[in-house]
Computed example of a mutant assay.
Amino acid sequence: MEKSNVHEQTTSVKDLSNDLFDELKGYIEGLEDKQGSLINILHKAQELFGFLPREVQLFIARELKIPAAQVFGVVSFYSYFTTKPTGKHTISVCMGTACFVKGADKVVAKFQEKLGIDVGETSEDGNFTLRDVRCVGACGLAPVVLVDEKVYGNVTENDVERILAEYE
């Protein structure tokens, strides 16, 4: 059966730090326009918790007095937000046209092989999450790989082990 992220449920976590919820609540209370700040609040929540589990989304909905479906809709629409715990490092391989034509699919396949995961998954050791992204706007460097915020250009399958070694 083929995986689809469209109807994927969010992760549910019972043991989230009350201190983080308190910090998020303080952030929300400090905003002048709470209703117009949903995306900013989600960014802050993801920064604090590392991802946006169901409990965090429900907390935000209650704090803003908006339907939970509105929060879930925004989280599922924007690819930046994640409902699953991510690894210590996020590897994003550009799959835009220029990168794909220059072999980004082979680069992704090599990362999958070396990490033992599929796109959208996190390695067993919790060190890496592998993502594919549509375009990073660096077509002249195609194919492009980002590890966290660091950009690697003209990446080939042969570069994958060296890139991973920098973060292990």
Rank of each mutant, 00 (worst) to 15 (best):
T11D: 11
R134K: 03
L141G: 10
E29N: 09
G50A: 06
F111S: 00
G30C: 07
D148P: 08
N154K: 15
Q46R: 07
Y27F: 02
E8F: 12
E55S: 04
E32Q: 12
I163N: 05
V145Q: 00
M95H: 03
S79K: 07
K44W: 01
N5E: 15
E32F: 06
G26T: 12
Q57G: 12
G36C: 12
K106I: 05
G26P: 09
L20V: 08
K88N: 02
L24V: 13
Y78K: 06
G87M: 14
Y167C: 02
N154E: 15
S92R: 00
V56T: 04
V151D: 03
D22K: 13
V101T: 03
S123P: 04
K110P: 04
T82I: 05
F49R: 02
R162N: 15
M95C: 07
D148C: 02
L48W: 03
N5P: 15
N18I: 13
A109G: 06
A104T: 06
Q9W: 11
K3M: 13
G116S: 04
G73P: 08
V151S: 06
A104S: 14
S92V: 04
K3T: 14
E157C: 07
V136I: 15
T122S: 05
D118R: 11
F51P: 05
G140S: 15
R54N: 14
Y78F: 13
D19F: 00
S17N: 10
Q46M: 11
L130Q: 02
S79R: 08
L141A: 10
D132E: 15
G126W: 10
L52I: 08
N40G: 10
L16K: 00
V151Y: 09
V108D: 04
K34F: 08
S79A: 12
I66P: 01
V56P: 06
K44G: 03
T11W: 10
Y78T: 14
L31D: 09
Y27T: 05
N154M: 14
E63T: 05
E47Q: 10
A68M: 04
F49N: 02
E55T: 02
I163L: 03
A109C: 05
E47A: 03
G30E: 10
N18R: 13
K34T: 11
L48I: 07
D19I: 01
V74W: 06
V56G: 02
G103N: 01
